[in-house]
Amino acid sequence: MGTSPDPLAERLAGLLGQCALGNQRAFADLYTLTSAKLFGVALRIVRRQDWAEEVLQECYVNIWNHAGDYAAARSAPLTWMTSIVRNRSLDWLRRPQSETTGEEYEIAVEIWQDQAPGPMERLVAAGESAALARCLEQLEAKQRQSIALAFFHGLSHSELADHMKEPLGTVKTWVRRGLERLKGCLSGT
């Protein structure tokens, strides 16, 4: 794992450590640095402003309460926080009472259909993972599209099949093969 020194990651890890010791000012800084990133993540999955606000609120209270759980050795701080938000958003979406329209999915489709220079550049610029961007580009269009839809908008297999107007089995195969190739590509670097 080529872990390049990332000033943001170091800053966030330090702030989380302070939060674990009850420093509320550090928590405010942590919020300032990360809330727009995490709100975007939640909003794309739950697709409703008020739900995303509620998810974000719960997640930051959780992050505060569990800051002591953050083990720097295991994952990057932003990855840790983002996973909390993603998991909460996905659990939220799987509640029986949450019904959403399909229109918003289009955003992701458009983004990823046309070679997607915008998001790719953002990934690279974020210093997050140039390898990931490169590996995503190597996927077949349908694989990339189904993975992007599932990942950004929390679509299940059957929702993917509905949306892409393809049989369930076909979509499942795209997702599975896409993930396998992604893993192979990322470990081959």
């Binding site: 975007g40 606000e53 990934l123 974020a126 950004f152």
Partner: peptide, 30 residues
Amino acid sequence: WEARLVPFAHAGKEIAPPGHVWRAISRRVG
């Protein structure tokens, strides 16, 4: 898998949450 995929989440746009979200959070934490 989180290390592989989750950075992908930040390829999307950043969207600033409204101010009342932080006020609610800091009330609960405080």
